[in-house]
Amino acid sequence: MKELLDLFLTFAKVGVMTFGGGYAMLPILQREVVDRKHWATQEELMDYYAIGQCTPGVIAVNTATFIGQKQRGVLGGILTTLGVVFPSLIIITIIAAFVSNFADLAIVKNAFAGIRVCVCVLIFNAVLKLWKSAVKDVAAGIIFGVILILSLLTNLSPVWYVIAAAIAGIAIQSIKARRAMA
């Protein structure tokens, strides 16, 4: 019971601290879920993000469901999801009900222009952390580089990159395994 409550509250905390969508959630997840609670490793977090890119729905919710499921099964997955959406429900409902021009308020615009700068720096730090555990050899570096460049230059859905990368991973590692056998 206590652990279920902990799952809900931790993800509610993650939800309220996420400014700017699922990617901005990453540094907060690294801090709360990987460093503090040890519910997942850096590698697992990356796996969840990769799968979240090519499964339906909001990435933040997909990641929350994964971690909850891993800790306490189906009930855990449902509770983390409810946790991560809970702050949005309350905050957005209050804004929709009482503040008609919220996004036009000068104080909100200025605050968010400042927050965006911080989110850039936090994502940069988060990516460096992921890079250390994801890119351990030249082949992985090439996969990273190609997908980074392609996704900056084209509007292709991330789904294709994820599928292509999975196939490339299987091919590269299978060749390596065969060479090691020979």
Partner: peptide
């Protein structure tokens, strides 16, 4: 082994997609 090998490719891909999304915010912000 195939699932493990797939994740070997997925991890740098996932990192790259996050980096690209971050660069999109960088462009908008700076």
């Amino acid at each position: 082994p195939y699932v493990e090998r797939a994740f070997y490719g997925l991890r740098p891909a996932s990192t790259a997609l996050i980096a690209a999304a971050g660069l999109g915010v960088v462009r908008l912000t700076f």
